[in-house]
């Protein structure tokens, strides 16, 4: 059985989600190849070739692939599927965007956001905002799967697979790229960070969010997250949203400040190793999942926390 993994990258660097998806793929088969689809991706392909366990790297380049437009991505993968029994894609906004297309075109059922490979045809995936786990068995000859990367360990980089150029496919003739608004940040990436500090509606304004959440995150070398309420109100950008319909994170430490703990928020962070909640309402549902709860007004608690961290030599 041969498995294709589609790499997560930004044309410059390969992302860790790829290494984690390779681990999921290796649980299906030892014949795992990686496709790097983008624009000017020599460097990304070279890095992908180092992932332990990868047999070969395929590289496809075009303008539309450089923008990872869904129609172009599925168009590049489809002809390759003649040689593969499964394609595994990290469940990022890019992966979720094109993977179901491949399933439709192959006339198979997509399997979304798996968190476990039971055997080559059986997978576990969360449903109902993570309030239930579904074990599904697929009868399809070819499998199209997106992978929740936080559920898998990253494969190492000890390999040296060959790299081969492949046809980039037809592009996206009726879809045109207009603009990107990508905010570059020096902080670690939310989905891959070891520590995440998130703020909620309690912040009350964007200024307060910056003033309270960001210095704490920077002190801890953490990524910044937010609840939907905080994003909707404009306190934080959309890509900070953690939850059922935002990003799923599973850091070593998740600190929720002024977040009530709605099921949709919990769906995105309850697999964190250690959860800390700071909330002035002792009955807030977030305390039901928190390892350490501090019932306090954040306005006093966060400055105290900064001080205590400094005192502890951090």
């Amino acid at each position: 059985m041969a498995v294709l993994v589609v790499a997560d990258h930004d044309n410059v660097a390969l992302k860790d989600n790829t290494h984690k998806t390779v681990t999921a793929a290796l649980a299906l088969s030892s014949e795992v190849d990686v496709l790097v689809a983008g624009q000017s991706v020599d460097g990304v392909a070279t890095q992908a070739a180092r992932i332990t366990g990868v047999r070969k790297v395929l590289s496809a380049e075009s303008d539309a692939l450089g923008k990872q437009i869904a129609e172009a991505m599925s168009g590049a993968v489809m002809p390759l599927m003649a040689s593969y029994d499964a394609v595994l894609v990290p469940a990022t906004s890019v992966g979720k965007n094109f993977a179901p297309r491949i399933a439709a075109l192959l006339d198979v059922a997509p399997i979304s956001e798996i968190i476990e490979v039971v055997d080559a045809g059986t997978f576990v995936r969360p449903i109902y905002a993570g309030n239930a786990l579904e074990t599904v068995n697929s009868a399809d000859a070819k499998k199209v799967i997106t992978v929740r990367a936080t559920a898998f360990k990253a494969a190492e980089e000890t390999g040296s697979a060959p790299i081969e150029a492949v046809d980039p496919g037809p592009g996206a003739p009726r879809t045109r790229f207009v603009a990107d608004e990508i905010v570059k940040s020096d902080r670690p990436e939310l989905a891959a960070a070891k520590i995440v500090v998130s703020g909620g509606r309690a912040m009350g304004s964007a200024e307060e969010f910056h003033r309270v959440i960001e210095p704490l995150a920077d002190k801890l070398g953490a990524a910044v997250g937010a609840s939907r309420a905080a994003v909707d109100a404009g306190y934080a950008p959309n890509d900070y949203q953690v939850g059922q319909t935002g990003k799923v994170v599973a850091p070593q430490l998740y600190i929720a400040i002024g977040i009530s703990g709605a099921i949709q928020h919990l769906a995105g962070m309850k697999d964190s190793k250690v959860i800390v909640a700071i909330n002035k309402d002792a009955d807030a549902p977030i305390f039901q999942v928190a390892d350490y709860g501090l019932v306090a007004d954040y306005k006093a608690a966060v400055p105290d926390l900064m001080e205590a961290l400094t005192a502890a030599g951090l």
Binding site: E134, V136, N137, F287, V289, L294, A312
Partner: peptide, 29 residues
């Protein structure tokens, strides 16, 4: 195309402890 073998509850997180203050929190972390 898919057969649902079973639907189970996710592992439950148990509520932890309440800490007294920020210093206590940092010490425990």
């Amino acid at each position: 195309h898919l057969k649902v073998a079973r639907v189970t509850e996710p592992p439950k997180r148990v509520a932890g402890v309440k800490v007294e203050n920020a210093a206590d929190l940092v010490a425990k972390l």
